[in-house]
Simulated scan of single mutants.
Amino acid sequence: MSPDPSALAAAFGEAYQRAPEGVWHAPGRLNLIGEHTDYNDGFVLPFALDLGVSVAAARRDDGMLHLRSLQAADQGITVPVKGGSLDGWAAYPAGVAWLLHEHGAGGASLLIDSDLPAGAGLSSSAALECATALALCDLYGIEMDRRELALLAQRAENEHVGMPCGIMDQSASLLATDGHALMLDCRSGLTSQVPFAPADSGLTMLVVDTRATHTLTGGEYAQRRAECEEAARLLGVPALRDVKDLAAALAALADPVLRRRVQHVVTENHRVEAVVGLLRAGAVTELGSMLTASHLSLRDQFEISWPEADVAVEEALRAGARGGRMIGGGFGGSAIVLTATERVDEVRAAITGAYAARGWTPPTIFEANPAPGAHRVS
């Protein structure tokens, strides 16, 4: 469940000695399939989680932005709303505020709460950006289409955090709807809602937070993006999404690393389209093999998986799960597993037991169901 808005409002009152003008919530996202396709102008299929980030906020008349988080040890950070430079968690909301200042946003006091595990690959950063964006838009009467707002939040992360992310996370947080996955064409920005209710088919989607630290500003993510851009340049296409003949593209590239990157991106786009077709046909039970194929491609072709994710998927399959894969940018974070509901306990036990046998930190395993996108809660 998302953070309690009444408790957050009370905490805001204690912190700022005044009541907030509202509380806004933005969910994290789970990407069902379509990994590292977004910045290649491809297709993704995320859905919103019922976990996320909530922001209580009120306007200030001094032109300053004051940021506090219930998850941070510091006593808050104050910066001018007209712009500046920050490191750490505060750069995400501050970057959004600085860009919205260009559209009329003024000073504000924000108190942030989250039940979304940071570093788990569930897009806590985008949730923070989107909750902040909604709050400031409402506080200052800024009318902005949600697609535009997603682009602004992405720009904040690119420019003020230094993370060259695509548009998927912010789009999922702002545009997703309850009981659906969001089919997003990352080139055109066009979206469609795809029905996704695993429970109706006797299935459960499990998220396995592997507890392996996940960070995307260390260089590996940027390196993968640069490799994809270089491959597209050598192939003479605007982006890898435009590769139509995979065999010919692979034959044209001398670098085996670039060949592997291309093979993943092209086949992953095909998997997204296949999964959308299965969901629209009501064939949810057939998704498992697509998830597992995605994991193998991310592990072997894109080379971004990590031991804890590989073990989680392998043990889940051994215990009878239908499929699973790592999610997120890679090198840490979470995996997902699709299993018959009646086998959930066996799958949990298999993964937990395998971690214990290796002396790893126990994973956190929870169920995930498509939830509503960002909204005002009070």
Rank of each mutant, 00 (worst) to 15 (best):
L258V: 09
V266T: 07
V257D: 07
A150F: 08
L253Y: 07
L206W: 01
E227R: 08
A172N: 09
E143F: 01
A232K: 04
E227Y: 03
A181D: 00
G219P: 15
A153G: 05
T215C: 11
D145K: 06
M168L: 15
P256S: 05
A156Y: 03
D169R: 10
L234H: 06
H264F: 03
L235P: 04
T210M: 13
G162Y: 08
L139H: 10
R147D: 13
D255Q: 01
A239V: 00
L246Q: 13
E157M: 01
V243S: 04
S192V: 04
L234V: 02
L184R: 06
R146H: 02
C228I: 03
A150I: 06
H214F: 12
E148F: 02
I142G: 07
C137Y: 04
N158C: 12
D255Y: 06
F196H: 03
A150M: 04
L190A: 15
A199N: 01
S201A: 15
H160L: 07
A133P: 12
A199Y: 07
C228P: 06
M144N: 04
L203C: 11
L182Q: 13
T177L: 15
L174V: 01
G219K: 10
R147S: 11
M163N: 05
A222I: 07
E227N: 10
A231W: 01
E230S: 12
S192N: 11
A222F: 13
C186N: 10
T191N: 13
L190S: 12
V208F: 01
L216D: 15
L174C: 14
R147W: 12
Y140A: 08
R187S: 07
A153F: 00
L175G: 02
L149E: 08
G179W: 15
A251N: 10
E229N: 10
A226S: 14
P195L: 06
E129Y: 13
M205T: 14
Q154L: 13
R211H: 00
L151P: 03
A172K: 10
Q193R: 11
M183S: 15
V161R: 01
C165I: 09
L240I: 04
L139K: 11
V266D: 02
A231P: 08
L174K: 06
G141I: 05
G219W: 04
Q193V: 03
L151Q: 10
V266H: 11
C228E: 05
L152Q: 00
E229H: 11
H214K: 02
A133L: 03
G218M: 08
M168S: 03
R224E: 11
Q154C: 11
T213N: 13
R261D: 03
L139I: 06
L149C: 04
V207Q: 07
T132Q: 06
M163H: 05
A153R: 00
D138F: 02
V194C: 07
L258M: 09
L174D: 14
R211P: 00
T132K: 01
C165M: 06
S201M: 07
L182G: 03
S192K: 12
R146I: 02
A212Q: 14
Y221Q: 08
Q154H: 08
K244V: 12
A150K: 15
V237C: 07
A199W: 01
Q193C: 13
N158W: 06
V208Q: 08
R147K: 13
L149M: 04
A135K: 00
G162W: 02
R211S: 00
R225A: 14
D145L: 02
